[in-house]
Amino acid sequence: MDAAQKFQSIDGFGYCLTGGSAQLLRAMSAPARAKLLQELFGTAGSAIGVSYLRLSIGASDLDAQVFSYDDLPAGETDPTLAKFSLAPDEKDLIPVLKEILAISPNIKLMGSPWSPPTWMKTNGNSKGGSLKPEFYDAYARYFVKYIQGMKTHGIRLDAVTVQNEPLHPGNNPSLLMEAADQAVFIGKALGPAFKAAKLDTKIICYDHNADRPDYPITVLDDATARPYVDGSAFHLYRGEIGALEQVHAKYPNKNLYFTEEWVGPPATCPRTWPGTPSSSPLGPRATGAAPCWSGTWPPTRSRTRTRPAAAPSAWGPSRWPPATP
């Protein structure tokens, strides 16, 4: 390895701050929480300097309840988003983010939706279904209102992915979004909405497993969508990391991100945090507890031109832009 030769840059290493994680953090005493956040996000002493966080836009499957920012009774719609509200995040998530930003003001944040509001979906349900084409514009403005609303709290989104795991409609919440549909949504609705609102938040496509590199390639093949897309995001539950080379080979000027690999606690792990009420289950909410993937990304093509290892942790984004020869 030639330490003087540079290849990719890294946006950051980190975790996902889920609603469940924020809830547990807020249940801690203020001094204990401050100490923990300093250890995670500080840079002095033994602090680990987490530099990137992924957030769910609305609820993820690791929140205590399923919600969007525009929930309505069955049969009602709100295409103007008059009832949009970040109130569900204002209880725990946003206060914790503000404490993190006080420690690390330059931390980068990525937002990812698990589902749009149910009234925008073909099945009217938080689980599965697809986005109705007649609500493409409304959903694009939903992203805009989220980014703008977070900004009013002093929280800047560096990037969003269009849909978490678009080929896995089995979670609650979730959404099925095929590649061709995502391309149309980005090119005809989301990209123009960001442009009209003068947002510099990056749009990242796919956000699912490495076994389907054809998905981001299909999105990037769309000439209308491509100018709005910063890059593609991947998980590693299926497929091999080398598949990302296929995307890079065809679109070398688009970035690649590793955004998720969930890890649960071992069977021997206590079900509650020490010092917290027994009603606060540890369970699967304790994501991001330990690094879960590392390696050379992408695979090296020669022994003399090794790319540095990227070692993001559970649900933690990192970026691999095109290499510099």
Rank of each mutant, 00 (worst) to 15 (best):
K198Y: 00
K198S: 01
K198T: 03
K198F: 07
L199T: 07
L199G: 07
L199W: 03
L199V: 10
D200F: 08
D200N: 15
D200G: 07
D200E: 12
D200Q: 15
D200K: 15
T201W: 04
T201P: 08
T201C: 07
K202E: 09
K202T: 08
I203F: 00
I203M: 02
I204G: 04
I204L: 06
I204E: 01
I204Y: 05
C205R: 06
C205K: 02
Y206C: 13
Y206G: 06
Y206P: 09
D207I: 14
D207V: 05
H208L: 00
H208P: 00
N209G: 02
N209V: 01
N209P: 00
A210P: 01
A210R: 15
A210V: 06
D211H: 08
R212P: 02
R212I: 08
R212Y: 04
P213N: 02
P213Q: 10
P213M: 01
D214Y: 12
D214S: 07
D214F: 09
D214K: 10
Y215E: 07
P216Q: 06
P216T: 13
P216A: 13
I217C: 08
I217T: 11
I217V: 12
I217H: 00
I217Y: 05
T218A: 15
T218R: 12
T218W: 12
T218Q: 15
L220W: 07
L220T: 15
L220A: 10
D221Q: 13
D222K: 10
D222N: 15
D222R: 04
A223I: 14
A223H: 01
A223C: 11
A223E: 14
T224K: 12
T224G: 03
T224P: 03
T224V: 09
T224D: 14
T224F: 00
A225P: 14
A225C: 13
A225W: 04
A225T: 14
R226S: 10
R226Q: 15
R226F: 06
P227I: 10
P227Y: 01
P227E: 00
P227R: 08
P227H: 04
P227A: 09
P227K: 12
Y228D: 07
Y228I: 15
Y228F: 15
Y228E: 11
V229F: 02
V229I: 15
D230A: 11
D230P: 05
D230R: 13
G231W: 00
G231Y: 05
G231K: 06
S232T: 15
S232N: 09
S232L: 05
S232H: 09
A233V: 07
A233M: 13
F234M: 11
F234G: 03
F234L: 05
F234Q: 07
F234R: 05
H235P: 02
H235G: 00
L236G: 11
L236I: 08
R238N: 11
R238Y: 12
R238M: 13
R238Q: 12
G239R: 07
G239Q: 10
G239M: 08
